[in-house]
Simulated scan of single mutants.
Amino acid sequence: MPRLIAPTVRLHDAWLEAHAEWGPGLHEDGFGLSASDEVDSPAGFAAWVARLAGQSDPACTIDAGRHRCTYRWIVEDERVLGGIALRDGDDAYVRWAGHIGYGIRPSARRGGLGAWALGSILGEARELGMNRLLAVCAVGNAASVRTIERCGGVFERIEETGSGPLRRYWFSL
Score class of each variant (00 low, 15 high):
19 H>Q: 11
20 A>V: 07
21 E>C: 03
21 E>Q: 12
23 G>N: 02
24 P>A: 08
24 P>Y: 01
25 G>L: 06
25 G>R: 07
27 H>L: 10
29 D>E: 12
29 D>G: 14
32 G>A: 11
34 S>L: 09
34 S>V: 08
34 S>N: 06
36 S>G: 09
36 S>H: 12
36 S>P: 00
37 D>G: 07
37 D>S: 10
38 E>W: 02
39 V>N: 04
39 V>C: 13
39 V>D: 01
40 D>F: 08
40 D>E: 14
41 S>L: 07
41 S>A: 05
41 S>N: 02
41 S>K: 02
42 P>L: 10
42 P>E: 12
42 P>M: 12
43 A>F: 07
43 A>P: 05
43 A>V: 15
44 G>Q: 04
45 F>L: 04
45 F>A: 02
46 A>R: 06
47 A>C: 02
49 V>W: 04
52 L>Y: 02
52 L>S: 03
52 L>W: 01
52 L>N: 00
53 A>T: 10
53 A>Q: 14
54 G>A: 13
55 Q>I: 02
57 D>M: 08
58 P>A: 13
59 A>W: 02
60 C>F: 15
60 C>P: 00
61 T>N: 09
62 I>Q: 10
62 I>F: 11
62 I>W: 09
62 I>N: 06
63 D>C: 11
64 A>R: 15
64 A>N: 15
65 G>V: 13
65 G>E: 09
65 G>H: 09
